[in-house]
Design a protein around this nucleic acid. Structure first.
Ligand SMILES: [Mn+2]
Ligand SMILES: [Mn+2]
Ligand SMILES: [Zn+2]
Ligand SMILES: [Zn+2]
Lengths: 155, 155
DNA sequence: ACCTCAATGAAAAATATTATCATTTTCCAT
DNA sequence: ATGGAAAATGATAATATTTTTCATTGAGGT
């Protein structure tokens, strides 16, 4: 019985292994931050994360939030997105979820994820990427497309 | 003779007309800022512009630089680009120059313009844009592709 | 259980951007 | 050209965001 209890408690936390792989400690702050992203979704600023943590009665200093957002970024767990509102936002990169772009309303700031990508689109971007790698001598790890316009309510 | 002189002096300054069209005054600060972009090229931060102005002995307050970068942005003369370095950069949108994307080295921060776009690429992006407009109900005015990776020296 | 060093919190500092307001400049009507 | 209204500017203060500092805490290996 006790063994069973331990198992179900530890199983969802393969984050522990991820941190270990990076020689980083799986601290409660780090887990709590990841939990916020898993529960509260995308496009969170440092302040957003900080507020969500407070709401959950998990006290984490704002400096620690910044430090760990940067760490998770370097670990490839988060990616940084910029919507031109003067602060950085982060979202989780899930292997499960499709890669996506962003559609931004330049009037009200609304952000929409563009998830569906056709096979054709996928191929095209791979092609463009290869071409750029050759032309510029870069190794390209990722890309990000932002579309700007007016949302249904603002147009 | 005099008429000729006036003509060649005023001709390059159709900026005057542009400002007039927007009911904005063609002040010396604004012209000086545009001159910096014409001479010093792309990817300038507010501070960069400010420094270039000082170097040219043209004294413009930093607040005025910020105000006018924003104005030129709204007028569609500049576009804002973000390379994840904590400050906003601006570059001129020239009808003459080709639209371009950016390739960013995530280690050293180097930024490369990707200018050449094939007919195929152009068509593809128009297609994607149309599709998104339908699907999301947005009107899309522009887009921007960022590629991230390692530059030849950092790879 | 102990020990070491990474991680953290609180606060100060550094950066970047925006707001305020008195003064100056532009530009339009005379 | 001159005068005047209104916009634009400069200096500075204020705000917002992110980073640094450093004493204390806690994670994880032994
Ligand atoms: Mn997203
Ligand atoms: Mn560019
Ligand atoms: Zn909108
Ligand atoms: Zn590099």
């Amino acid at each position: 019985m006790i063994i069973f209890f331990i198992e179900v408690k530890d199983l969802p936390e393969s984050w522990k292994d991820v941190f270990h792989r990076f020689n980083k400690k799986a601290t409660s702050s780090r887990r709590a931050i990841l939990e916020v992203f898993e529960e509260k979704g995308q496009h969170l600023s440092a302040e957003d994360v900080y507020e969500h943590l407070r709401a959950k009665k998990k006290k984490v200093g704002i400096a620690t939030v910044y430090r760990n957002l940067d760490l998770l970024l370097r670990m490839g767990i988060l990616r940084k997105v910029n919507f031109g509102d003067g602060r950085e936002h982060y979202e989780m990169i899930r292997r499960a979820a499709r890669f996506h772009h962003h559609l931004i309303c330049t009037r009200c700031g609304q952000v929409v994820d563009c998830e569906e990508m056709t096979q054709e689109e996928e191929e095209f971007l791979q092609h463009l990427r290869k071409e750029l790698e050759q032309r510029q001598g870069f190794v390209i790890h990722s890309y990000h497309i932002y579309f700007y316009g007016l949302c249904p309510r603002c147009r």
